[in-house]
Amino acid sequence: MLLLSAFEWLVRFQHMDRRWIFLGMAIAIAIPMLFPFTSEFSVDRSVKDAWQAVEDLPEGATVYISADFDPGSRPELEPYYRAVLHQLFTKDVKIVSATLWPAAPPLVFPIMEEIAEVYGKEYGTDYCFLGFKDGKELAIKSIGENLPKTYPVDFQGTPIGDLPVARGFKQLKDFPLIVLVSAGFPGIKEYVLQVQGQYELKMVGAATAVSGPDYIPYYKAHQLAGISSGMPGSAQYEKLVFLEHPRENLVHPERLLGIEGVNVLNLGHVFIVLLIFLGNVAFFTTRPKGVE
């Protein structure tokens, strides 16, 4: 009788209302948020390479940042974005940035402004934000070919010629490094396909966990100098910038969102793996004979 009910329970478990799964997931995610803990992790080669490419920049160089993410991918990419901004500003590297995502400007520019303020950087001379450009691949092509023509003015309408930081940069090729913070399309893949090959640009990027694997071939083919993918990548980057190699002028932020997030991820993954495991156990103990 007990056996029978156990059997039945297993059968039911396989077809349980998915809201139970949602509840479980919610709990798994909430725990590390409510009771933060730290866990050890090492840094992937690809993340280290991305970090190194920034480190290798000569002082006073100017990089181009394409910040193409939206609130949805914010948890994964914002930590990287913040960390790389810290890294660049502490190195006195200047920034020209823009975005191809319509939803990005209100998100990415305030962050840049905030961190710039921390390091006392000035808009126009140390960094600038050219705003959103529609056209996706076409826009990338156009930026690659002629930056001022694509962005005659910045997001506030200031002519690009009046921004000292952007002065003299005609093409993407003129930047020693391009940093792509990319949540999907258009993003890293399009930059690689449209302009990297043609102009032999040096690029590093951060991608979401979902699209990260897509870019591995580019990294392997040296078309990307480095790549950080997903929350773990962001956390590793934070670790490099804030914990392992802090520059003396670094201003530590209050929270390291990536490192916190990776703990959430930790439990989330464990929860899913557990679910899969239990699901299979239930399936194999209850499946009728002869069914494949």
Binding site: G60, G168, K170, P176
Partner: peptide, 8 residues
């Protein structure tokens, strides 16, 4: 044409 190219 371009003002400030780094030495590399």
């Amino acid at each position: 044409r371009v003002e400030d190219l780094t030495p590399d």
